[in-house]
Design a protein around this nucleic acid. Sequence first.
DNA 1: ACCCAGGGTCATA
DNA 2: TATGACCATGGG
Length: 224
Amino acid sequence: MNADIADWANLYDVLMDAYGPQKWWPGRENPFAVVVGAILTQRTTWTNAAMAVDALHQADAMTPEAICRLEKMDLEQLIRPAGFYRAKAATLKVFCERAGKAGGVSQLFAMPKKALRSELLSMRGIGDETADAILVYAAAKASFVVDAYTRRVLERLGWIEGRETYAMIQALFEASLPKNVTVYGEFHALIVHHGKVHCRARPACDSCPLLTRCPFANSQEELS
DNA sequence: ACCCAGGGTCATA
DNA sequence: TATGACCATGGG
């Protein structure tokens, strides 16, 4: 079916060919809603995060100002379905306060990429992955998102050993791709989708687009 | 009943 | 640097 994957660009093409453009964060016209989604979806399914997002919309609370005004406990109850609701409520509060201090979300996002990334990382509850997700999907800055699926796919391709740091893996991608926000965003979404379909569900591997390199195509034991 | 999902923080060694 | 405990919900 498919030959070995040659390089990063090839991997992107193969995944895009197999799955097509991913529709992540419906409603990207509201960058703030994307930030909220990025925080709420941490270690949680998107359907759970979406319930919390809907609750915020229905409460007319999908703005930094509204969230700043909300009592912490009320915010916690609204986002409860997303899990870790106390921590996430605190993180949302911090982001909204800092955005307000910067003069609004668009002002905050007007910062240079590197400075904005540091600013995001300084907020408790926002780490590397969430910061990069916000950069790419909300602030439209090309910063590659590395997550567990990315590591798994790269390990199975034999492109990384496994001990590499987040920054190292991110650098691998960024050195091999055109600095294009859309490409970065699609690539990460494609990797996650591929991971869900083929790196967890065993039966689906018959049609794996990375077939010759997929562990399931050969032995059953290479999976952790 | 158990497992895990579009992570991150903090304490410990 | 690197593990481990902890946070919490909903769906399989």
